[in-house]
Simulated scan of single mutants.
Amino acid sequence: MVVDNLSNATIYFSLHPLFKKAFDFIKTQDIEKIEPGSTQLEGDSLKVSVSETKMKTKSEAKLEIHQKYIDIQIPIKQKETFGWSSSTHLKNSVKGYDAINDIEFFNDAPSTYFTILPGEFAIFFPEDGHAPLIGEGETKKIIIKVAVM
């Protein structure tokens, strides 16, 4: 997992060949005015989704993992808290892995919580169980899906 400010994104370009393209896309956007929807930047290998959704309480938020994609999550409207736990500690799957949607939810409790602000981002790799959208009210965020290579 990585947590940092968007101004430091170049530090992480070497972690994946598509990270530069992902963050370059974000730099070209007026993030405050970006409209909800999905964009494919590099076919199924690099996808951007902007969503507006209701935040959850810690007890409502489920840890999730992805096997095929790395998540880059960027809050736009307000701060967002995430639960986190190493996937090696996740034992209580809700329904098993959904290969079509590349997601598996868990009833396990996160080992830690952290909060990021607009202008910051979190990168979750397949080994990072994460429970997003913890907070109050409605939020708007960007999720970039980067295919594992």
Rank of each mutant, 00 (worst) to 15 (best):
D102S: 03
T112F: 07
V50L: 08
I70D: 01
G43F: 13
L46I: 03
A131R: 01
L46R: 09
T53R: 13
L90F: 11
I74C: 04
V50N: 00
S49W: 04
S86N: 05
N92S: 13
K62R: 15
F121W: 02
T112L: 07
P75S: 03
D102T: 00
A122F: 15
P126N: 02
G43R: 06
G129H: 10
T81R: 11
T115D: 08
S85T: 03
S86A: 11
P118A: 00
H66I: 04
P132S: 09
S51T: 15
T57E: 07
S111M: 14
S49D: 11
E120L: 02
P126K: 11
A109D: 14
E35P: 06
K79M: 13
T53P: 00
A131E: 02
E60G: 09
M55D: 08
T39A: 14
K91F: 07
K62G: 07
S51H: 03
Y69W: 06
I70W: 02
I100H: 09
F114M: 02
I72S: 03
F114K: 04
V94T: 06
F121Q: 08
Y113G: 14
L46N: 03
H130N: 06
E64A: 07
I34F: 12
K68M: 13
S93N: 00
S49R: 15
K79C: 06
A61V: 06
I70Q: 04
K54P: 09
G43Q: 03
D108G: 08
K62V: 03
D128I: 05
H130Y: 04
L117G: 08
P75I: 04
Q40G: 09
A61Q: 11
H130A: 01
K58S: 07
K62H: 11
E52N: 15
T53D: 12
K54W: 01
E64K: 02
S93D: 07
T39C: 12
D128L: 09
T57D: 06
S38T: 15
E35V: 14
E120F: 00
I123E: 04
Q78M: 13
H130W: 04
A122Q: 05
S86W: 04
K56D: 11
A122R: 00
P118M: 05
S59P: 06
I74D: 11
I72Q: 08
K77W: 01
Y69C: 14
Y113M: 07
N101F: 12
I116S: 00
M55A: 14
A131I: 11
D44S: 15
S51G: 14
M55F: 13
E120S: 13
K62I: 03
P132F: 02
I103D: 02
P36Y: 01
S51Y: 07
I72E: 06
E52I: 05
T112Q: 01
K62P: 04
K58D: 09
S111G: 12
